[in-house]
Design a protein around this nucleic acid. Structure first.
Lengths: 150, 150
DNA sequence: ACCCACATTGACGTTAACGTAAACGTCAAC
DNA sequence: GTTGACGTTTACGTTAACGTCAATGTGGGT
């Protein structure tokens, strides 16, 4: 077999129960990630997750849960669901051919560039607000008021 | 007068002409930032920018241009226009009272926390994709194909 | 047997962030 | 004097990402 390359997977916000066998109900995941069941079903309609079914009821695996966390992280970073789907799909396609690997590499690099642009934006934003914080704190100190820090 | 605290201002993407006296037409700014005039007018309707007028025609100052760049950067980071407006307004309110300064400080800190959360998300995202890039590049190299780098 | 919490599938409603088209004014160029 | 590039307002259309019912099923207590 050709060496498996890995699948995109990382830590979501709530990642305590490291049991890969566990299954989750939709309400459970909704609570955990502070979203509604409607949202989760919507993501499924959009093809972002495909839980198993027992009859009609959806059963979510640990992998599904991880995927969901990944999706939400993408959202926090300002990506649309369509973009997130593209990225998720990207790593599920056929990796056997060299041309496909090349394409995957190309798109990864493009995406990394995008992410690094975002990071520059973010760093600039943070720097500005840190500056504001300093100035305001200094002004408050000068006026003899305390700044909320000890 | 009470020491001016500064106003939020930073570099947008296109920031070559450092002439603070220049004025810009709406089409000019639209081209420069790669958005439509409709978008700029929409931002005005939403109270995000308030250009001067000569009759009906809008005239944008260097400050307006900077503001616009700031708005777009906020958008790239995934903030809604409502959030961006809040942040912009934040720095235009009355800074004379101690209680207002305290409030400003509090909200700055909250926002910084949010931004730092975003940064952690972003770093995790970047790390993952870098990892993917490495793996795929390695696999390609193993197969004797070149990776697009020299 | 009945209730309740949880699940399901439609289907229509809503909000944000613009797009798009209509109808019009203005000024310089040909 | 009309064409064309720019500007304007008003207003309806659109897409994404869900919210909010309604109608129904299902398994577990009491």
């Amino acid at each position: 077999m050709t060496g498996r390359i890995m699948t995109v997977a990382a830590s979501a916000v709530p990642s305590e129960p490291r049991d890969p066998q566990r299954i989750y109900s939709i309400a459970e995941l909704a609570r955990e990630f502070a979203i509604t069941a409607r949202t989760i079903r919507f993501y499924e309609d959009e093809g972002l997750i495909k839980p198993k079914r027992q009859g009609l009821t959806r059963l979510y695996s640990a992998g599904d849960r991880t995927r969901l966390g990944w999706i939400l992280r993408g959202k926090r970073l300002g990506f649309t669901l369509a973009e997130i789907k593209e990225l998720l799909d990207l790593y599920q396609v056929d990796r056997t051919g060299v041309s496909q690997l090349r394409e995957l590499l190309r798109r990864s690099r493009l995406h990394i560039e995008d992410l690094e642009h975002k990071r520059r934006d973010l760093d600039a934003h943070i720097a500005e607000f840190r500056d504001v914080e300093l100035q305001v704190a200094a002004e408050l100190a000068k006026r003899g008021a305390d700044t909320g820090h000890d």
